[in-house]
Design a protein around this nucleic acid. Structure first.
Lengths: 230, 230
DNA sequence: AAATGACCAAAATAATTGATTTGGTCAAAT
DNA sequence: ATTTGACCAAATCAATTATTTTGGTCATTT
C-alpha cells in the first residue's frame, strides 16, 4: 500500500470514528483533519468533498462487511447451510456500526446525507440482493422449496432490521447477549428451512462464494466509477 | 352501554382517526370535538386533558388488540401451537395502527407525547410479557425446551418490530403480501420450535387463555386507577 | 510537489419580535 | 344538569436580523 493510500485510510478511519460518535452533520472536515493529524486542505487532496468522503467511507465499510462475512464463512465448519450463512452475515453486520446505521437509516449518524436526492441508499441495485441469495440457495438444493423465497428473504430482512433497530425502542439492558440471539436465529432458520435430506452443504458454499465474488466486483466497479468521475 | 359511555367512545373514535392521520401534535382538541359532533368543552367532561384522552385511547387500543388476538385464536383450528399464537398476535398487531405506532415508537403519530417523562411506554409492567409467555408455553410442553426462552421471546420481538417498522426504511412495494409474511413466520416458528412429540395443543391453548385473562385484568386495573385518579 | 491554514461565501444557528394557534376554563345558554 | 363556545394565558409558529460555523479554495510555505 502506497504512503498516499495509507494516509487516505487514516482519514477514513478518523472520519468513521467521528461520524459514528457525533453523526455526519456535527462532524466537520476540520475535526476529521485534526483527528487524522493533517491539515484541512490535505483532505481535499484525497476527496472532492465531504459528501464524497462519506460515500467512500460507506463503500469501504460495505467492502469490509463483505470481507468479514466471507472470512467468517470460510472459517465456519458448517458454512454451507442457510442458517450459518445468515448467521455469519449477522455477525458481520453486528460488527459494523456503519452497516447497522445504514440498515436502520439512522438519522443521527447519516445526517443530512440521508436527505440528498442522489443518495447512495435509493440505489436500487442492492435491493433484491437477499432474495437472489435465497433463490440461488433454493435452486442449489440448500433450502427447502416449499416456501416462497421472497417471503424467506423478507423475514431475513426483518430479523436483520430487528437486530440493529430494536435497541432504539427497547431497553438494551434486557436484551439477551447478541451472540445468543444470532445463534438462536441460525438454529431456527436451519431447523425450519433445511430440506429433509439435509441439503447440500457444498452446493451452498459454492453459492455463497459466487455471491460474494459478485459483490466484490460490484464494489470494485463503484470504486472505479468513483475515481473516473473525479 | 350508557349514553354517556357511547359518546365517550365516539370521542375516542374521532381521536383515533385524527391521531393516526395527522399525529398527536397536529390534532387539536377542537378537531376532535368537531369530528365527534360535540363542543370542545364537552370533551373535558369525559377527559381531564388531551394527554389523558390520548392515554385512554392507548388503553382502549391495547384492549382491542388483546380482544382481536383472542378472537382470532379461538377461531383458529390449531390455535395451540406457538406459531399460530404468534401468528394471530401479528395479525392483531397488523390490524391495529396504534399498536403498530406504539411498537415502533412512531414520532409522527405519538408526537410530543413520546417526550413526556411519565409516558406510558416506559411503564415497565409490560416489558417481560413476551418472555413470560414463551416460558409458560415451554413449561406446558408446547415449545421445545432446548432453546433459551429469553432468546425465543427476543426473536419474536424482533420480528414484530420488523413487521411494523421495516416499511419505514424499505420500499413497501417490494414487500410480499403481509398475509404471506405472517404465515411464513408462523410456519418457521412451528417447524423450529414445536417439540419432537408434536407438543400439547390443548396445554398451549390453556396457556393463552390464562395469559389473555391476565391481560384483561391488568387493563381493567389501569382503567380503574385511571378513573380513580380523576 | 506536497501540504498548509488564512480566507470567504454560503449555510446553519441563535436571538428577537410579532402574530397565530391551542389547551383548558367557566359564565351563560339550553 | 348538561352542554356550549367566547375567552385567556401559554405555547407554538413565522418573519427578521444578527452571529457563528463550516465546506471548500488557493496563495504561500515547506
Amino acid at each position: 500500500m502506497s504512503k498516499s493510500d495509507e494516509r487516505e485510510q487514516r482519514i477514513l478511519d478518523a472520519a468513521a470514528d467521528l461520524f459514528i460518535h457525533y453523526g455526519y452533520d456535527k462532524t466537520t472536515v476540520d475535526d476529521i483533519a485534526r483527528k487524522a493529524g493533517i491539515s484541512k486542505g490535505a483532505i481535499y487532496l484525497y476527496f472532492k468533498s465531504k459528501d464524497e468522503l462519506f460515500k467512500s467511507l460507506l463503500i469501504r465499510e460495505m467492502a469490509a462487511y463483505s470481507e468479514t462475512w466471507l472470512a467468517l464463512l470460510e472459517a465456519d465448519p458448517n458454512g454451507g447451510t442457510l442458517g450459518s450463512m445468515y448467521k455469519n452475515s449477522l455477525y458481520a453486520l453486528e460488527g459494523s456500526p456503519f452497516m447497522s446505521a445504514m440498515l436502520r437509516q439512522d438519522g443521527r449518524v447519516l445526517g443530512s446525507y440521508l436527505r440528498k436526492p442522489d443518495n447512495f441508499f435509493r440505489d436500487t441495485r442492492n435491493k433484491a440482493a437477499r432474495y437472489e441469495f435465497v433463490k440461488m440457495m433454493q435452486d442449489a438444493g440448500a433450502v427447502r422449496r416449499d416456501m416462497d423465497p421472497k417471503v424467506i428473504a423478507h423475514i431475513m430482512n426483518m430479523l436483520a432490521y430487528g437486530l440493529v433497530g430494536l435497541g432504539e425502542v427497547m431497553d438494551r439492558e434486557d436484551f439477551p447477549p447478541t451472540r445468543d440471539i444470532i445463534e438462536g436465529i441460525a438454529e431456527i432458520m436451519d431447523r425450519a428451512l433445511t430440506p429433509e435430506d439435509g441439503g447440500s452443504s457444498e452446493a451452498g458454499k459454492a453459492v455463497v462464494r459466487h455471491i460474494l465474488e459478485a459483490a466484490r466486483r460490484k464494489l470494485e466497479d463503484s470504486t472505479k466509477s468513483e475515481s473516473d468521475r473525479e
